[in-house]
């Protein structure tokens, strides 16, 4: 689709400040709406699946680490090591085994990174529940399970939601790296734009969409947090 502009740029060799290759162009957006929307949809899908999977695994894992002191060391240590390994390397570990026909490698990698953010924030939040609150709950006859569901988790919820927000925003940015294994959502347009003669409007539009997606999802989670935690609303007001 962008071949006309590309030919023009190709003739010039290096990308200067060519008016034919602007950073933003409405005609690019209007002519490529379908491509942009498809990439956005893929990006959103990868993000949502990864964060959802990560949440389902991470919260029980954090509760386990909180309850069983002996496990918190290994769980935190493992997530720490994982965090040091770059995403590109992780995709490189997984892709040869999963192939790249399906986004399996990218999804596993994204889930693992989101997982450790959520585990760490959930564990920190659970540990910050004041001891005297736990004491009085115990005094009122709460059992371990009731205490978890009705005291500890609600009090940790703000911290858990923060973890979810950080994980979501980071995942949106990280999806772009999945391009290496064939599933990068908007990242495919960013890197594809670079590789097809430094096609600026495509790079910039995809970048802006990516940042916008992160901010929108962050706001959605913020709103969800306000709805399910009315007490935090009162405190900040």
């Amino acid at each position: 689709m962008p071949s006309k502009v590309n030919d023009a740029v190709l003739g010039l060799g290096a990308p200067g400040d060519d008016p034919r290759n602007p950073w933003f162009s409405w005609s690019y957006v209007s002519q490529n709406t379908d491509t942009l929307l498809a990439a956005l949809r893929e990006h959103l899908m990868l993000t949502l699946v990864a964060v959802a999977l990560a949440t389902v695994i991470a919260i029980p894992l954090a509760i386990l680490a909180y309850r069983v002191g002996a496990l918190s060391g290994p769980i935190l240590g493992f997530t720490g090591v994982l965090y040091t390994v770059p995403s590109l390397a992780l995709f490189a570990f997984l892709a040869p085994f999963t192939g790249i026909v399906q986004p399996t490698a990218v999804l596993i990698g994204l889930t693992m990174y989101a997982l450790l953010t959520i585990v760490r924030n959930t564990l920190t939040a659970l540990r910050q529940v004041p001891a005297d609150v736990l004491d009085s709950a115990r005094g009122m006859g709460y059992g371990r399970r009731a205490m978890l569901w009705r005291i500890e988790l609600p009090l940790a919820l703000p911290g858990i939601m923060t973890g979810l927000r950080i994980a979501t925003v980071s995942t949106v940015a990280l999806v772009t790296v999945g391009e290496i294994a064939g599933w990068g959502g908007l990242g495919e347009l960013i890197i594809g734009g670079f590789n097809s003669n430094y096609y600026r409007p495509q790079i910039m539009t995809a970048t802006l969409l990516c940042v916008a997606l992160a901010l929108v999802l962050d706001l959605v989670l913020l709103a969800v947090g306000r709805v399910i935690m009315p007490w935090t609303r009162r405190r900040t007001a």
Binding site: I166, V169, T176, V177, I190, G193, R200, T207, C210
Partner: peptide
């Protein structure tokens, strides 16, 4: 900085 993909800056800056 969390919302901006590194890949984007790496492709934009050289241009």
């Amino acid at each position: 900085s969390r919302a901006v993909p590194t890949v984007a800056l790496l492709t934009i800056f050289p241009l």
